[in-house]
Every structure is written in C-alpha cells, then in structure tokens.
Write a protein that binds this DNA or RNA. Structure first.
Lengths: 129, 129
DNA sequence: CTGGATCCCAAATGATACTG
DNA sequence: CAGTATCATTTGGGATCCAG
C-alpha cells in the first residue's frame, strides 16, 4: 500500500474521533476555492495571474488567501522570481499531488451525477410548491 | 464502467465548464456538515436524534437544514412515522450511497495526512513569526 | 421527538483603492 | 504583476422559543 494511503477500513471512518479529523481537514480544503485551485495546479505549475484567469470568478483577494492557506498546509509551494514585473509561480507539493486522487474522484462523481441532482432538486421543489 | 462513473479523463477535469460543475456540486456538499451526515448515514438508516447525538457539535437547526438540502439533492430519503412522539428516519438513496466512495477516499486521505498538514502548518507559522 | 420561526452575531467573501 | 488594506455586504450558524 502506498504511503499517504494508510490502511483505514471504511467501517472505521464514522468513529467519532476519526470524524473529527475528517471534519477538520474538510473545513480547510472544503472551502469555496481550495479544490478549484488544487485542480488547476494538478495540470502543472501556474503563476498567480494564470490561476486567476483560469478560475475566473475568484477575486484577487480570495485567490491570495486561498493560496496562502494551501501553502501553509504544505499543499503548494510559492516561488517568487524578483523580476519587473514580479512573477510568482505556484506548484503542488508531493502532499498536494497526493490530494489530487481523492479530489478527482469527487470531481468525476460531480460531473457524472450533477444532472441527477438537478433533476432531484426540481422534483423536490415541484412537490413543495 | 459503472453507471454514475461516466468516463471523464483526469485531463478534462480542469476545463472551465467542468470546473464550474464540480464547483457547484462542491458548494453544495462541501459545507460544514453534509459530508459528516452522509458518512453517518453510510452506516445505515438513522433517526434525527441519533444523527444529532452522533455528530455532537451540530445544532438542531443546522442538522435540519443539512438534511433538507441532502433530501432536495436526492441524496437522502426522509421517512416519517406518525407516532407519538413522532419518529423520522433518514437513509441514503442510491445516489447518496454512490457518493460514499469518493467521500471515503477524502476521509482516508484526511486521516492519513492530517499529521503532515499539522507539521507543515507549524513550520509555516514558525517561519512567518 | 422533530422541526419551524426569529433574532443575532461572527466569519467569509466581494469591491475597490493603493503599493513595491 | 502580485499583492495588501479597508470597507461593505452576504452568509453561516448558534440560541431560543414555539408547535404538532
């Protein structure tokens, strides 16, 4: 079994103590932007403005904050090239890349099922009037 | 390949349009409680008060709201037994159970790596003073 | 027991202006 | 270009009370 993929049986996963850990990590990477940024960086190193353009709807402020958080968690590295104009590149660390697998699992699920969700929502809203 | 696991290559996953879908789904199930509730229900049907006790820190209000959201998205069913006192059971739908796999992948990653994250945070905070 | 309705506070985010 | 600082706004979520 790979490092970073410690043996944890699924039945252990809803034990209270484990849940708190999962909850904590989720509170961190489960915000509005982190996963989007990680997915972008999954394609390779990107500079600040590239990320901003790729994600589009994110504000400069939130991109900065998100990147700081990810850097603090050891998921991305920040490389400054002191040129004029300055250039800052972000890249996933090994830990960050290891996150890519579960994130892509969620991504695939989302793409495969968002339609069903939309249908369910419409049905629910129709019932409720 | 299984239904609900549509072929989506990982390289497609950071295309803008796909990202928006992933972002949307994540905004829904990526809140503070949904995943916790789904994980609890992964162990089987539970009634309202059982969920509340199992999760512990959640308020009555947020549990209600979270369950409504999950029900609306077609991820859980709500079954009312009109007894006195009333009894309401929640259970994952097939769609909800299909979400369990990627969620558990995240959970396993979280449990396997939260220590590294803590270490990285401490190192970051120490550098920054 | 379940959960709706209110009130209220804290945190998250956006908009904008400014700087090396 | 890549931020920082500030302000305004929205949102999340707890507390409490009430009802079937």
């Amino acid at each position: 079994m790979e490092p970073g993929h410690t043996a944890v049986t699924n039945t252990q996963l809803h034990e209270p103590s484990r849940c708190q850990i999962v909850s904590g990590v989720l509170a961190r990477i489960g915000d509005k932007w982190s996963v989007l940024v990680v997915m972008q960086l999954g394609a390779g190193s990107r500079r600040f403005s590239e990320l901003k353009r790729a994600i589009g709807s994110i504000s400069q402020r939130m991109l900065t904050l998100t990147l700081r958080g990810l850097e603090r968690d050891g998921l991305v590295t920040r490389t400054v090239t002191p040129s004029i104009p300055p250039r800052v590149d972000y890249e996933l660390t090994e830990l960050g890349r290891s996150l890519l697998d579960p994130v892509q699992a969620i991504g695939s699920w989302a793409i495969g099922n968002h339609e069903k969700i939309t249908v369910a929502q419409q049905a629910f809203d129709a019932r409720g009037d």
